[in-house]
């Protein structure tokens, strides 16, 4: 479902080469996998490569039975749309759309008709306790509400892989708890959630933690939820 083979990413800065990620091979099991490490350890680089935002210098990324690292930009967009959902730390909603339209946006990209997508988005918002905020735009929503809407959007096409980059990083603890609970609830069955975090408390809700340092995978810690 989600696998890397000898994945490496170098960045050229002036005369020097920075090895942001070095030879990382891993087959992500179902459940929540947290990625931890200090700044510059290669967490974000890994997430960018897994989601197909960027291409590796070396190695392979396999997602939904497809090797995606060598696909074109548009082909990677297509894989992302139908197989993944992404939750960013902040700035995660489209500002000109209201909550329900934001949630339904991936369905619009997938060519689903308006009635169907609005009905599904409304159901999802309802289950997230945000029905009353459906017509509000991002600027009218709290940070916690925005993140819950971003999660609903990530889930609307029922992807098998979710990516979250510090999803509670900008939230107060109460809102953060709600967001984490939602992520936990929706990582069931075959679904995988790859969660990048600095926060050990957040990482504790995962099934395993991968530790990185200086672009290298250090160790794995298996947890029991």
């Amino acid at each position: 479902m989600l696998e890397t083979k000898q994945l490496s990413k170098d960045f050229i800065q002036g005369d020097s080469t920075i090895h942001a990620l070095i030879d990382f091979s891993y087959d992500f099991p179902k459940g929540i996998t947290a990625i931890m490490g200090p700044s510059g350890s290669g967490k974000t680089t890994l997430l960018n490569l897994l989601a197909g935002f960027d291409q590796p210098t070396k190695g392979e990324v396999h997602l939904a039975k497809k090797r995606i690292d060598n696909l074109s930009e548009d082909a990677r967009s297509d894989v992302r749309l139908h197989n993944t959902g992404f939750i960013f730390q902040n700035w995660s909603l489209l500002p000109t759309l209201n909550a329900i339209e934001n949630v339904a946006f991936p369905m619009l990209l997938a060519g689903v008709g308006k009635d169907e997508r609005i009905a599904k988005a409304a159901g999802l918002l309802d289950s997230f306790g945000l029905k009353h905020r459906a017509k509000h735009k991002a600027s009218q929503l709290s940070g916690g509400e925005q993140q819950r809407i971003a999660i609903a959007r990530a889930l609307i096409l029922e992807p098998q892989v979710l990516f979250a980059d510090e999803p509670t990083g900008n939230l107060d603890s109460a809102s953060g708890d709600i967001v984490l609970e939602l992520l936990k609830q929706h990582t069931q069955g075959e679904r995988r959630l790859v969660l990048v975090t600095h926060d050990a408390e957040v990482a504790k809700l995962s099934d395993r933690i991968l530790y990185f340092r200086d672009g290298k995978f250090e160790r794995i810690e298996e947890l029991t939820r």
Binding site: A51, F53, E73, D74, S77, D78, R80, L81, H82, F86, F88, W91, S92, L94, P95, F105, P106, L109, A110, R153
Partner: peptide, 15 residues
């Protein structure tokens, strides 16, 4: 950033 977000969600360049 907005266009980046759209692309991250799955919008193609053509969109």
């Amino acid at each position: 950033r907005e266009f980046g977000l759209m692309r991250a969600i799955g919008a193609k360049q053509q969109f």
